[in-house]
Amino acid sequence: MTLQQLKCAVEVWKCGSINKAAERLYMNQPNISRLIKNLESEFHLMLFSRTSSGMEATQDGKMFLTQAEKLVRNTDTFEHSFKNGVDSSTTVRIALPRGSYLTKAFANTLNAFPKTSSLQISYNETNNEDVINCVSSLGYDVGIIRFPIEFESNYKKLLTEKHLKFQKIMLFRFAVVMRRDHPLAGREYVHLSELSEYTALIHGDNHCLSFSDAETDRLYRTQLYKNSISIFERGSQFDFLRDIPDTFMLVSPLPQDTLDTYGLVQAKLPENEIGLFEDLMITPRDRHHTNFVQRFMHQIVEIEREIMEE
């Protein structure tokens, strides 16, 4: 038995598909099939059965894979903590959505954190599916996912199945952000119907999970916009908002200093036109919050309070 065999088997279990597991592990499908077959031969059991919906763990397979997943996760944590002699207290990997209040909280945390001889930070802005994969499979310390409140039960069910802990960190409604000289600027409220003639900036990699096909449309109201630009890098959104006069974007509420830096303003959407959204922090179930993560969560609460008071 090798760690690679266990990682392959666990990933197939999570994905329900050898092809999807191969994509995530950057391996080819025949190699994964061979490794799993050898693992089954060694332990004299069948881990998976093929069904119309994909690869499904057998009863014996579920028992085996549950223990294998714990072993893989603990090994990743061990390597993450001690590889190259880096102190785990100064090594942080986080995956989260694009949100200026989150980057400000992270920067504040980092600036106030005691410096040691080595500091390793990975800050990965991405979509919900990747965030969950980073925390459940790739050894990330913490993740944050964002979704309409209607999908809360779906996400919590998925996170529980993946043995992840979760904690609500913010409830909000999207704001409309635009240039100070935008035709709709200066108003407290803007109606969605009024945005149809302007150019929407939309993050192009907000992939939906399989149980929520309507999520991207629900997030960004894409069906309303005649003109839109899909972007994949958060810095571009501020450049475009600043340099293209008729652009706008639906975002989580921005801190005032961020608006001032880029010459932007934000307006509210009527409550009957946009629902509540939730940012949820997720961590591995068997891992305690590090000092850095605890400080980060405190900063999020502080900045959330500032935004809501503005």
Rank of each mutant, 00 (worst) to 15 (best):
E40W: 08
S230D: 11
L280P: 02
H163V: 07
Q59S: 06
R179F: 07
E42L: 07
I132D: 00
Y123C: 04
T77W: 06
E152M: 07
N108Q: 11
S88Y: 11
D279Y: 06
Q29K: 12
K37E: 09
I144E: 05
M308H: 08
L241R: 03
P30H: 09
A68T: 09
S41T: 02
M1V: 10
E271P: 03
G139H: 01
Y140R: 01
D60K: 11
L195I: 08
L102F: 12
C134N: 11
E152C: 03
S196E: 15
Q120E: 13
D181N: 15
A105H: 00
N84V: 04
D260F: 04
L25M: 13
N124Y: 13
L250R: 00
E302A: 14
G61E: 06
F151P: 00
E310K: 14
V86A: 07
E197T: 11
H191W: 05
I307Y: 13
M249C: 15
S196R: 14
F147K: 01
T116F: 00
Y26P: 01
L219R: 05
E233M: 12
F248D: 07
T160C: 05
I300H: 04
I18K: 12
A185I: 13
F43K: 11
Q223R: 11
P245Y: 05
M308V: 10
F240V: 06
K7H: 04
Q256M: 06
P255C: 10
R295Q: 15
L209Q: 02
S236M: 15
